[in-house]
């Protein structure tokens, strides 16, 4: 999916410092490559944005400004698309992005109660990231898994038929994984 040349992407990743926006001199050539790979295709804006977000975990505002200029799409339209889709984020996200589905089926089968339980457990609200940068919480609008409602996604993993009482266990599993990762790094 990432269509930028590898050494440019490596350079970009190296330039990323926690808590800082990516360096423009590293970021923009990568965006140029991504845009070029979609050249001539109508409706390329969303895949371009997806590619950038997959790479960085979020969409820094300057990346949107640059996309607007390079693709000759008004900035208001670019931000309109970004702010419409809950998948896109303009804020850096935690290691684990928890998205609770609020689509009709999940909502009816208790999605909101699941969301409240997660909010309590993590001490953060929708759109926020925990202080230790481990978890971000967002709501989604239907992941297309209505038969498994209510659904919670953690990064790319779908958790089905989640009950509020099982939320603590679910989160603990990721906290443990995070701790193990940290230990391994040390």
């Amino acid at each position: 999916m990432i269509s930028a040349s590898e050494h440019k992407v490596d350079h970009l990743m190296e330039s990323l410092k926690p808590g800082h926006e990516p360096d423009e001199t590293a970021l923009f050539p990568v965006i140029d490559d991504i845009i070029t790979s979609y050249h001539g295709q109508g409706g390329a804006l969303i895949p371009v944005l997806q590619t950038i977000q997959n790479m960085l975990g979020y969409l820094p505002e300057n990346s949107l400004r640059y996309v607007s200029k390079a693709m000759k799409i008004p900035f208001s339209e670019v931000t309109g698309v970004v702010s419409f889709y809950s998948f896109f984020s303009t804020q850096p996200r935690g290691t684990y992005l928890i998205r609770v589905c609020m689509g009709t089926a999940c909502y009816v089968r208790g999605g909101n109660e699941v969301l409240e339980a997660i909010t309590r457990e993590l001490g953060i609200r929708v759109g926020e990231t925990s202080d230790d940068h481990q978890f971000s919480l967002e709501v989604g609008r239907c992941f297309g898994a209505c038969g498994l409602a209510p659904v919670v996604m953690v990064n790319d993993t779908v958790h089905q038929r989640v009950k509020p009482s099982k939320v603590r266990e679910l989160i603990a599993q990721y906290q443990q994984a995070a701790a193990e990762k940290m230990e391994a790094a040390l």
């Binding site: 799409i73 008004p74 900035f75 208001s76 309109g80």
Partner: peptide, 23 residues
């Protein structure tokens, strides 16, 4: 957008929160 090719304003956000305005 279509007549003036300026594009200063678009729909931002979603649902009840939709605002027609700049970025």
């Amino acid at each position: 957008h279509d007549i003036q090719h300026v594009g200063a304003i678009s729909a931002q956000f979603r649902g009840y929160d939709t605002v027609i305005g700049p970025a």
